[in-house]
Design a protein around this nucleic acid. Structure first.
Lengths: 235, 235
DNA sequence: TTTTCATTATGATTTTTATCAGTTCTGCCT
DNA sequence: AGGCAGAACTGATAAAAATCATAATGAAAA
């Protein structure tokens, strides 16, 4: 795995929207000096479910999926990460092995902050722990809502919701309504929580209806309003 | 809502296993002096989805369900609380409205810590924020695993898992293998994420198979090993 | 360019689960 | 005790989704 030009945290524009938004001065310099910056190629795994955490990963630029392998070996994608997101902190905080695998969806630049440095910062900078709590709280809420939808909503609605979620997370490609991430149909299914064939079928259904447009792995949203209606959010 | 004899936090034996396990001295006294202790009767609501959080609730003694109402008005139980558990902190940390409703399953004693006092303690006692992070981390992991099972496992397995989870959470009645909580079949269904009739059917199936025994709302586990096998955990 | 393999797509079928309908049971209230 | 309402149960049916099978497409490698 290659390293890339070291990014000075104090000059990283992703920091504003990350958990380090209120970290300044010496603690930040400390982080910046101790981290290593690496490039991961598409498909590479940053950490494995069951592995020991030695630090946290901060996404400088990239798109990453976090997935859990279920009992029958089926992947469930539980989270998607983008620029500024931090990964692997959960396992580190409770001192447990990773319960998810982080796989790079497209070439990414990721900084690694060693365990001790991060923990030290956490102790010295109370704003960081506060931000961590907020982050965890938000992710917990998201997980609980997802759980409810998984239990109660039909696949078609969940698929529509997932497409909108992908749009929110990664946005559109420049000058287009194509969602800026390439996922296989299987990955989409593993995000929705359904069989691959079902996901494929429902995607081409939405395509026929003119709500979305499929061209290879690229999905463009032709009618956001209608897609929201299909997702049946808050009625 | 009645109050009950004020419990001194420093003498509360539930504290050891709670987020306040490392809170001592003045911060703890402060909490103790500022809180109010109330008795909630079965069925009473401690806080409502959509309501504003004015503080956190600490369960002194009781059994409480946290549920989200889905789009079609169906309840999804997302968490169960017992002695020593703290509720409502998530919404307070991110300064949002409650996204779940807390309903008392059986008569409970609950202490209320006002927002400002809790936040002050959080700022002055770094061990508390650390414990909060650990708590949130654990709940996030649980939610993600639950999510995966909901997406991948059949209802029967999830029901078995839920029964084992109930046993872990509330234990058995004294000198018996009856799970120490009374839930309606509908509530069990809303915990599993299925239709009430399906839950009923599968429960009586497990009953016929001799894995569990039903007597009214009380469920006793006759064969834990077999129930674990039915739940199909880690194969 | 051809071959190869994985991904996508589509159809047929089965399985699972929800829904609907109706009955019995149980606890509670007067 | 009797009656009432909600909860639990059971059966029949419908709907949803998974699975199996097989074909088409497409991208990467020889």
């Amino acid at each position: 795995m290659k390293t890339f030009e070291h990014v000075d945290c104090s000059r990283c524009d992703k920091r504003q929207s990350s958990v380090f938004c209120n970290t300044h001065g010496e603690p930040l310099e400390n982080l910046s000096d101790s981290k290593t910056c690496s490039v991961y190629k598409k498909g590479q795994v940053i950490f494995h479910e069951g592995g020991h955490p030695f630090g946290v990963y901060c996404v400088n630029k990239g798109k990453i999926k976090l997935s859990i392998i279920g009992d029958e070996g089926k992947e469930q994608i539980v989270r998607l990460a983008r620029d500024g997101d931090v990964l692997g902190y959960r396992s580190m905080l409770v001192n447990e092995r990773y319960n998810a695998t982080a796989t790079v969806l497209e070439d990414s630049q990721v900084c690694f902050i060693p365990r001790e440095i991060f923990m030290k910062t956490l102790r010295s900078d109370s704003s960081l722990s506060f931000e961590m709590m907020k982050l965890l709280s938000n992710q917990l809420r998201e997980a609980e809502v997802k759980l409810t939808h998984l239990a109660q909503k039909p696949v078609r609605e969940r698929l529509a919701e997932t497409l909108l979620f992908l749009k929110e997370t990664y946005g559109y490609e420049p000058d287009s309504t194509q969602i800026a991430v390439q996922l296989t149909r299987e990955e989409i299914a593993n995000l929705v929580g359904t069989a691959t064939e079902t996901a494929i079928r429902l995607l081409s259904e939405l395509n026929k209806e003119g709500v979305i447009e499929l061209s290879g792995k690229k999905i463009s949203i032709k009618d956001v309003r209608e897609l929201s209606r299909v997702a049946n959010l808050n009625d």
